[in-house]
Amino acid sequence: MANNDAADFDVKIIKWNVVAFWKWIASEEECGICRFEFEACCPDCRLPGESCPMAEGKCHHYFHLHCIQKWIKNVQSKRKCPLCRQDWSYVEDSSEIVL
C-alpha cells in the first residue's frame, strides 16, 4: 500500500483461488532425444509427471528417463551421452519436481 495508514483500507477477503504449476528444473526446455518438453511425457507414455520423469546425467545433460534408458540399452550407444559422448551415469542426488 502506498500510504502507511492501512487502517483506512479495510479489505475483507471473501474468496481466493490458488493456481500452481510444476516444472522440471533443467538447463534445457525439451528432451533432445524425442523433442518433447520435459513437462510433456516421452512418446511412449501417456501421462507426464513422476511416471515419466526427467533424468539428469553427471555431464549435466537432461533427457526423459525413458528416452535415455532406451538409448543406453542400445549396444551401439556404448552407454555414452547422446549430446557430449561422455560415459552416461545418473546424478547421485535426487532431482525434485519443483512446485
Binding site: 513422476e50 520423469p53 539428469e56 528417463l65 534408458q69 545418473y90 535426487s94 525434485e96
Partner: peptide
C-alpha cells in the same frame, strides 16, 4: 520426495 536413482532402478526392471 521424488528420487531419480530409485526411479532408474524401478524403470529398468519394468522395461525388462
Amino acid at each position: 520426495m521424488f528420487k531419480l536413482q530409485q526411479k532408474v532402478k524401478e524403470e529398468a526392471t519394468k522395461r525388462e
